[in-house]
Nucleic acid binder design. Structure first.
Length: 834
RNA sequence: GCCCGGGUGGCGAAACUGGCAGACGCACGGGACUUAAAAUCCCGAGCUCCGAAAGGGGCGUGCCGGUUCAAGUCCGGCCCCGGGCACCA
């Protein structure tokens, strides 16, 4: 008797699929519905571990299931190949980043092939190839033409460890996203930005189109990140400085009669004019300087003491005409709103704390509608709810909502203010002072300034001979023969831009390239994208909830406005799978807790690895790796292999029958049990694939089915070969999306001439799932007291009667008063006593 | 502080619309096979109390309360863990 040889079986079927071109996606096929399923492309570094594999296993199960359902499936794979680790490795061991990257890609590809994932490998892409990044540059030029790409000097996040600039999205709690212990510094640099803020509103509004298809929390995270806030801008004239007005942004203009001071940020652009000629100028300058050096660490911000000083200036409240002092306060942000706020201690907690410290007056201008009225001298904290305006001139008596509306309109009419919406989202800084990325395709000419590289000169190729030091200047600047070039406009001397693009630019549009990966005239053909897009199912980690997924949505909208795509959103459905952890933390090379995928495949076979990752937890949950668990998966596959092996000989020539046409009336008791269990399992597994993807329960169900088949041994007595073959065959078909190699092998052993990759998903028969007799639970006062087996069609009244007459129940209710009897058909009877 | 998740046996988990809590698996215990071990097969098992046993009772889904014939599931209040945002005006 042959043992289950995972290595041999897996190699065999991978070869057969390849020869069949089983996973090639067909462009322009209109006879079938298309289905684009995609896993986030990996950064090829370190080892492929079971965390990666979980992602691809989920995607592969979906891809294979959809093919069986008759879809024309696009399921590609590629490499996010630019990035810092390649450069750091180059500095450390002296290999060229390209060689290091390509070696990693080769290894990644080998491991993915060893796992037999059903990718269309003809479409493989690598973002570090000029054939790819050429189109990055092309997109950049289009954005430059549209004013979406622009250059500006500004404060940027600088990671000393990466020796480069980071986007806001790459700063987590003030630390670098790659170096969790390295504090990000602020530097003033001239940089390239993409105007993502132009799309703030649309990025927010279009989330409505993603509802239902995207996890709620991802949408919430993006919503928070964009941070829309509606309010008003109001100008306070500075007393004694003609023409100087300080604008504040507020969401609570209704509290403006309660203003005790005007607070400006230390970095406010009008600070110079404001302080000109006031007493104590020098000491104020010193305080401002120290405020500007405040820490960006989240923990520091949260605990920072509120500080400020009076500037000696006063401003005029445009509503009340009141003269209020102007203060500089450390908690006012120069980068948000207008860099100045009105201080309303009674109705803002921060202002309340500030006023307590510096003894500014507290004035209640919004009163509670019910309950104890607010009194300024008794308040322990600010009242920030809506209520009714009091002591607010002509607005007194209005509800807060109406006061906001009316005051905003009046401010606009009198030209000292206007309604305004602000966003937290900032433009995306994409310049990186590193080598291993796509060169930004512009040159600087003394005569013509910034000149885009013409399309026909793309790609601007990365030079090979670069000295990599990691010291913080762009390495490309050290390659004079590359930097010095001619101005495309005037032909005079010019210098190339030496910064490269953030690698998130590469991954913002890569999934379009899969539809037309070898196109050398355009990033892709419009018709191909029209056919395959939007992506039906995207699968990846929650870590990209903001970064990659927000950038991708932005790119799509830009491309739509460039009229090269027609849709508004690139991804219809998103699935965020949980992490694979060991010791409670995500697997990563730096933590040294990785379980290598290739070791897993070599030791147990990839089907076993796949089965375990799918079985151990539902796919959206984090999964703690457990070596013993995988033994269980191996045992199950062995068990089913032996079962089929034992009976296959007798079944090879039997007719294959899905079971739907079996003469059920004539079937033996054993056959009925087997067919019923099979179709019940098939129904629930089908529902799992169509619904919530709880592969863990699907596998549990198949295990139960196999246990049931075992329990019916001997199977060569009282079970016809046709039925047994159907039962085992359906089992193999159900396993195929999850453990494809062994499923194919079992299917072949049963004597089926075609491979499963050419087969359809079996249809269950509702008729066959039905039980003839059902177990009904009997409760007395909600407590389980007995069970009876009744005919499936037994009427409710009769079921109640049977329950009351039951030998176990009757004595328990004898002589007691029955209040009522509740019956749920086919499930339970609850007798309420007393 | 605000906004999301989550808390079920020794462990991973299941229970989809309120209806047998713990399916399936891991680990564990007992047995069969074996000279022996591994593998395999069969059986057992939430905790606890009564009983020699067969069997039976009570308790049990983070805590407290509520709705209901019936609550892991619904409602109110709290505790703990994870994630996101954060002096955002």
């Amino acid at each position: 008797m042959a043992e289950y040889d995972s290595q041999g079986i897996e190699a065999k079927w991978q070869k057969i699929w390849e020869d069949q071109h089983a996973f090639d996606a067909v462009d322009g096929d209109t006879s079938r519905l298309k289905y684009y399923v995609l896993e986030m492309l990996p950064y090829p570094s370190g080892t492929l571990h079971m965390g990666h594999m979980r992602n691809y296993t989920i995607g592969d199960a979906v891809a294979r299931y959809r093919r069986m359902r008759g879809f024309n499936v696009l399921h590609p794979m590629g490499w996010d190949a630019f990035g810092l680790p390649a450069e750091n490795a180059a500095i450390k061991v002296g290999t060229h980043p390209r060689d290091w990257t390509n070696a990693n890609i080769q290894e990644f590809r080998r491991v993915l092939r060893r796992f037999g994932f059903s990718y269309d490998w003809r479409r493989e892409i690598s973002t570090c190839e000029p054939e790819y990044y050429r189109w990055n540059q092309w997109f950049f030029l289009r954005m430059l033409e549209k004013g979406i790409a622009f250059r500006k000097k500004s404060k940027v996040n600088w990671c000393p460890e990466c020796a480069t600039v980071l986007a806001n999205e790459q700063v987590i709690d003030g630390y670098c996203w790659r170096h969790e212990t390295t504090l990000v510094e602020q530097r003033e640099l001239e940089q390239w930005f993409l105007r993502i803020t132009q799309y703030s509103d649309e990025l927010l509004a279009d989330m409505a189109k993603l509802e239902g298809g995207w996890p709620e929390r991802v949408l919430l995270m993006q919503q928070n990140w964009i941070g829309k806030s509606r309010g008003a801008r109001v100008r306070f004239d500075v007393d004694g400085i003609a023409g100087l007005g300080l604008e504040v942004f507020t969401t609570r203009i209704d509290t403006i009669y309660g203003v005790s001071a005007l607070l400006v940020a230390a970095g406010h652009p009008q600070m110079g004019r404001l302080l000109e000629g006031v007493m104590g100028h020098a000491s104020m300058e010193a305080q401002i300087k120290s405020m500007l050096q405040r820490s960006t660490k989240a923990a520091d911000i949260a605990t920072a003491e509120k500080e400020g000083f009076f500037t000696g200036r006063f401003a005029l409240n445009p509503f009340s005409g009141e003269r209020v002092p102007v203060w500089v306060a450390n908690f006012v942000l120069a980068e948000y709103g207008t860099g100045a706020v009105m201080c309303v201690p009674a109705h803002d907690q921060r202002d309340f704390e500030f006023a307590e410290k510096y003894r500014l007056p507290v004035k209640v201008v919004v009163q509670r509608v019910s309950g104890e009225p607010l009194r300024a001298d008794r308040m322990r904290e600010a009242y920030t709810e809506y209520g009714q305006s009091v002591e607010s001139g002509p607005y007194t008596g209005l509800a807060s909502e109406q006061a906001i509306e009316k005051m905003t309109a009046d401010a606009a009419a009198k030209k000292f203010g206007a309604g305004e919406t602000t966003y937290r989202l900032k433009d995306w800084g994409i310049s990186r002072q590193r080598y291993w990325g796509a060169p930004i395709p512009v040159v600087y000419c003394e005569k013509d300034g910034i000149v885009p590289v013409p399309d026909e000169n793309l790609p601007v190729r990365l030079p090979d001979n670069v000295a990599l030091t990691g010291l913080g200047q762009s390495p490309l600047a050290g390659v004079p023969e590359w930097v010095n070039t001619k101005c495309p406009k005037c032909g005079g001397a010019a210098r190339r831009e030496t910064d490269t693009m953030d690698t998130f630019v590469d991954s913002s549009w890569y999934f379009y390239r899969y539809t037309d990966p070898h196109n050398d005239r355009a990033p892709f053909e419009a018709a191909k994208v029209r056919h395959w897009f939007p992506i039906d199912q995207y699968i990846g980690g929650i870590t990209h909830a903001i970064l990659h997924l927000l950038y991708s949505r932005f790119f799509c909208k830009v491309m739509r406005d460039l009229k090269i795509v027609e849709h508004d959103e690139p991804i219809s459905r998103l699935f965020t799978q949980g992490m694979v952890q060991k010791g409670g933390v995500a697997m990563s090379k730096s933590r040294g807790n990785v379980v290598g995928a290739i070791e897993m495949a070599e030791k147990y076979g990839c089907d076993t690895g796949r089965m375990y990752t799918l079985f151990a937890a539902p796919p959206e949950k984090d999964l703690e790796w457990n070596e013993q668990g995988i033994e269980g998966a191996a045992r199950f596959l062995n068990r089913i292999y032996r079962l089929v092996e034992k009976h296959a000989g007798a079944l090879r020539s039997a007719a294959m029958d899905w079971g739907a046409h079996v003469d059920y009336g004539a079937a033996s008791a054993k056959e009925k049990v087997l067919m019923r269990k099979t179709h019940q399992t098939l129904k629930r597994v089908t529902n799992d694939f169509e619904g919530r993807w709880h592969f863990n329960t699907s596998i549990a169900l198949v295990m139960e089915l196999v246990n049931e088949i075992h329990a019916q041994e001997p199977l060569d007595q009282g079970v016809s070969p046709a039925i047994l073959k159907s039962v085992l065959g359906i089992t193999a078909l159900m396993l195929y999306p999850m453990t494809p190699h062994i499923a194919e092998e079992l299917w072949e052993m049963l004597g089926n001439p075609r491979t499963i990759s050419q087969e359809k998903w079996p249809e269950y028969s509702e008729e066959l799932t039905r039980e003839e007799r059902v177990e009904v639970v009997i409760q007395i006062n909600g407590r389980l007291r007995g069970k009876i087996l009744v005919d499936e069609s037994l009427a409710e009244d009769e079921t109640k009667e049977r329950a009351l007459e039951d030998a176990r129940i009757a004595p328990l209710i004898a002589g007691k008063k029955i209040v009522k009897v509740v019956a749920v058909p086919k499930k339970l009877v609850n007798i309420v006593l007393q």
